[in-house]
Nucleic acid binder design. Structure first.
Lengths: 106, 106
DNA sequence: CGGATACTTGGCGAGTTGGCTAAATAGCCA
DNA sequence: TGGCTATTTAGCCAACTCGCCAAGTATCCG
């Protein structure tokens, strides 16, 4: 057994994995504009509430969001606002690839 | 059918998904210090070369790295240097969660 | 040419993900 | 209490991921 990867990469990958889904990315983007309850997010995502609830649980376990029960509703909000910084770079990567594809045209 | 998620989230999620694996994160981190050939990365990752090659192909398709064959070797390098900005925020999320867990101790 | 080295591709198996429906849980109000 | 609404949990299944080994391709060199 040569080298075990530093556990730092495992932990970082776990956070990225939590973000690596269109619905979860949408949710994070939406929460960057303020807290939302599960039913609001459910309407916007366009999936079953149980599915959205699972996505939120996953984001919570990854340490990206936190929740807060008020009456019969549960409100979620971002725990680490800088999460949105991701988007800038992800967009840069995408535009880069788009440009490449255009150039290739072979 | 209520709302289809903007395709922007799908594309962004694809990039994050490519990064969301410990070995690939390690590779990207390593490439941020300069180009490397597959055999160098293989030694460092500690997996079969075929496995590392597959990770590199995946990163290439995501538009994160590009390659360059020189003789019998293939060198990979980052296509979008800002990819490393991710790490700062991912680390912040992780420290945030670590703190939470410490506080909870219930 | 044949052989060695560097890499990629194909295929398989174990494990994970993500969606759904149905059932359970919790809070509010009559 | 019962009924209604909001949410989570459980269970199922199809699809995907990731590792390995084996086989294929490409380049260099003798």
């Amino acid at each position: 057994m040569p080298h075990p990867l530093p556990s730092r990469f495992k932990a970082q990958a776990a956070v990225l994995k939590a973000l690596a889904h269109p619905s979860r990315l949408f949710i994070v983007d939406e929460l960057s504009r303020g807290e939302r309850c599960v039913c609001e997010l459910t309407d916007m995502v366009g999936a079953e509430m149980s599915t959205v609830s699972k996505h939120l649980t996953l984001l919570k376990h990854a340490g990206i969001v936190e929740d807060d029960k008020r009456g019969v509703q549960v409100f979620y909000r971002l725990k680490t606002p800088c999460v949105m910084n991701f988007f800038q770079c992800v967009t840069a990567v995408r535009q880069n690839s788009a440009k490449e594809e255009e150039l290739q045209t072979r």
